[in-house]
Computed example of a mutant assay.
Amino acid sequence: MTEYERSRTMPAQPEHVFDEAANVGRLDTWLPDALHVDHVDPEGLPAVTVHEDRTDEDTSALFRARRDQMRLEWGTRDQGSYAGWLQVAGIGSGGSEVTVHLSFFDEGHDPGEQAVSEALDGSLRRLEEQVRLRVGNTAG
C-alpha cells in the first residue's frame, strides 16, 4: 500500500469549505486528477459511479460525507484499488486547513509519487478557487 497526503490553508470558514467539497454534483471539479475521474453520478449515497478516463469504464465507488466530523471519504467498492479522504479543520480567524489523503492498495493503480503529489496540490488549489467563488458570491 502506498499513501500520499497534502494540506493547504484556505481563507474561509470550515463549514463553507466542507459544503463545497461535499457537493456531489461538483466533485469532478476538485477531485485529484490522478484518479482520472471524468464525472460522478450519484446512485443513492453512499454508492456512486465514477467514470475513469484512463480505462474509459464506469467503476463502483463509495462516497461518504460526515459533516459532524468535517470529513469526506471515498474509494472503489468492488476491486478496492484506492481510497481517499478529505478533512477540514478550523484554524481560527475564519480560516481552515484542508488535508487530502490517498491510499493505493493496488500498485497498478498508483500513478507514482510525482503525479499524485501534483494531483493533490492541484486538487486543493481548485477546491480553494471554488470556495473563494462561493464565499464571494454569498457575501454580496
Score class of each variant (00 low, 15 high):
1 M>A: 15
1 M>Q: 08
2 T>V: 05
3 E>V: 09
5 E>K: 14
6 R>G: 03
6 R>T: 11
7 S>E: 14
7 S>A: 14
9 T>Y: 09
10 M>F: 02
10 M>D: 01
11 P>M: 10
12 A>I: 06
15 E>V: 08
15 E>R: 14
16 H>P: 00
16 H>N: 12
17 V>M: 04
17 V>H: 07
17 V>K: 08
18 F>E: 00
18 F>V: 05
20 E>P: 00
20 E>N: 04
22 A>G: 01
22 A>T: 01
24 V>W: 01
25 G>L: 03
30 W>E: 05
30 W>A: 08
31 L>T: 10
32 P>K: 08
32 P>L: 03
33 D>T: 02
34 A>L: 02
34 A>R: 04
35 L>Y: 03
35 L>W: 03
36 H>G: 12
37 V>I: 15
37 V>R: 03
37 V>Y: 01
37 V>F: 01
37 V>L: 07
38 D>Y: 03
38 D>Q: 13
40 V>C: 04
41 D>C: 00
41 D>Y: 01
42 P>A: 14
42 P>F: 02
42 P>T: 03
43 E>M: 08
44 G>N: 08
47 A>H: 12
48 V>K: 00
48 V>E: 02
49 T>S: 12
52 E>C: 03
53 D>K: 14
54 R>T: 05
56 D>C: 06
57 E>Q: 15
58 D>F: 08
58 D>M: 04
58 D>E: 14
60 S>D: 15
60 S>I: 00
61 A>T: 07
62 L>P: 00
62 L>V: 09
64 R>G: 01
64 R>P: 00
64 R>V: 09
64 R>A: 09
66 R>S: 06
68 D>Q: 10
68 D>W: 07
70 M>W: 10
70 M>I: 04
70 M>K: 05
72 L>V: 03
72 L>M: 09
74 W>A: 15
74 W>D: 06
75 G>R: 13
77 R>D: 15
77 R>H: 13
78 D>H: 02
79 Q>N: 12
79 Q>R: 12
83 A>N: 12
85 W>L: 15
87 Q>G: 03
88 V>C: 11
89 A>Y: 02
89 A>Q: 13
89 A>T: 11
90 G>P: 00
91 I>H: 05
91 I>F: 06
91 I>S: 12
92 G>N: 06
93 S>F: 13
94 G>M: 10
97 E>M: 09
97 E>Y: 02
98 V>C: 07
98 V>Y: 10
98 V>I: 10
100 V>Y: 10
100 V>M: 15
101 H>P: 00
101 H>G: 05
102 L>S: 09
105 F>R: 13
106 D>V: 05
107 E>Q: 12
108 G>T: 11
109 H>K: 13
111 P>C: 13
113 E>Q: 12
114 Q>Y: 01
115 A>I: 08
117 S>W: 01
117 S>P: 00
118 E>W: 01
123 S>Q: 13
124 L>S: 10
124 L>C: 09
124 L>P: 09
125 R>K: 10
125 R>L: 11
127 L>C: 06
128 E>A: 15
132 R>I: 07
133 L>I: 02
134 R>T: 12
135 V>Q: 03
135 V>T: 15
135 V>K: 02
136 G>W: 11
137 N>S: 14
137 N>A: 15
138 T>Q: 14
138 T>L: 13
139 A>E: 11
140 G>M: 12
140 G>A: 13
